[in-house]
Computed example of a mutant assay.
Amino acid sequence: MQGQDKPTDTQKDEAALWHVKRAGGSMSVAQKAEFDAWINADPGNRLAYDQMRVLWTQVEEPVRRVSEVMSPKKAGLKRLREWLSPGRAFAGGACAVALGAAVLFLNPDMIANWQADIVTRNDTVTDITLVDGSIVHLAANSAITTDFSNGRRDIELLRGQAFFEVTHRNGDRFRVRAGSTIVEVVGTRFNVDYLARDTEVAVEEGAVRVSTPGDKEGVLLGAGDVVAIGADALVGTVHQTDIAAIQGWMQGRLSVRNVRVSDLVARLDNFAPGRFVALGDIADRTISGSFPTTDVDGSLETMAAAIGGNVVRTSPWLTVIY
């Protein structure tokens, strides 16, 4: 039997899946019996499940508290005075930590949004004309910063997807940074995807050089070329691609080929008001297809059906596929 001090990673994963199933409220009699047998089979199982319940509460309950505190002004002030009393200093600090964790979990893009010059909503593609005349088509829930001072033409894609139509200007370089990836052009049309684990650059017209701090030489891409830069900041192999499929997000569809389910869920999450999370073995499976971004709930259901998964909406803020 496992010790009671620390559940194994497997037990934690099983506990997360059981909590999702129970939160969904649709367990069959057989599943309830299976859960009872699992939780009683090993003390580590019960400890893992108890820890998962506490974690879930820390994520969702503070959000409800914020709603309660902000509604009636007088009641909010009264609670604030109570929380500031010396006897509640520790509890207040703990609540603040839990609240901060909840806010970052439910809105992980908050810090990037503070840094950004332009942030798009999660239900539309935004066309932006930059000061040099170049055009950026920015995907939903994406964020960029711009720097056109002292002759520079620098863009940083903090999050999301963007398609660039770069205006030629006296040979001045136009540079896009996405994480560790640097794209340099003079005049061209290209796509940058900074949603998934990798950063992907695809060229429709012209040529760009893609590099990283660890690979300053990088690779040169021409029309129809695509390359991925992994989390290790290494530039991958250049391939030919269907640029129209890559640009599908501008017409309200995500077209993918052999991508990890967790990566596709992360992409769909950018078009949803709440959070989408993939758990368990399903997260590492691969999937191909075309999914509408105008109906992300339907796309998630379609994806789950294709891979034999389940979708549970635990609250208005969180949807889990497992």
Rank of each mutant, 00 (worst) to 15 (best):
H19R: 02
H19Y: 02
R22T: 12
R22I: 12
G24C: 05
G25N: 10
S28G: 01
A30C: 06
A30S: 11
Q31T: 07
E34H: 03
E34V: 02
F35A: 02
A37E: 05
A41L: 12
P43M: 10
R46T: 05
L47V: 07
Y49N: 01
Y49K: 00
D50E: 03
Q51C: 06
M52I: 05
M52C: 06
R53A: 01
T57I: 06
Q58P: 01
E60H: 12
E60R: 10
E61F: 09
E61G: 06
V63K: 05
V66S: 02
V66P: 01
S67Q: 13
E68V: 08
V69P: 03
M70D: 07
M70T: 10
P72K: 13
K73C: 10
K78M: 12
R79V: 01
R81F: 07
W83A: 15
W83P: 08
W83K: 15
S85F: 03
P86V: 08
G87Q: 11
G87R: 08
R88T: 10
R88Q: 13
A91Q: 11
G92L: 15
G92V: 15
G93V: 14
A94I: 09
A96L: 13
A96R: 15
V97K: 15
L99N: 08
G100S: 10
G100P: 05
A102R: 03
L104V: 15
L104W: 15
L106E: 12
L106T: 12
L106S: 14
P108I: 08
D109M: 07
M110T: 14
M110Q: 14
M110N: 13
I111Q: 13
A112I: 01
N113T: 11
W114E: 13
D117Y: 06
V119T: 11
N122Y: 13
N122G: 10
N122A: 12
T124W: 11
T124A: 10
I128Y: 00
I128E: 00
L130Q: 04
L130S: 04
V131A: 15
D132N: 09
I135Q: 04
I135P: 01
I135A: 04
H137G: 02
A140C: 07
A140E: 02
N141M: 04
S142G: 06
I144Q: 00
T145D: 02
T146F: 00
T146Y: 00
D147L: 00
F148N: 06
F148W: 05
F148G: 05
S149I: 14
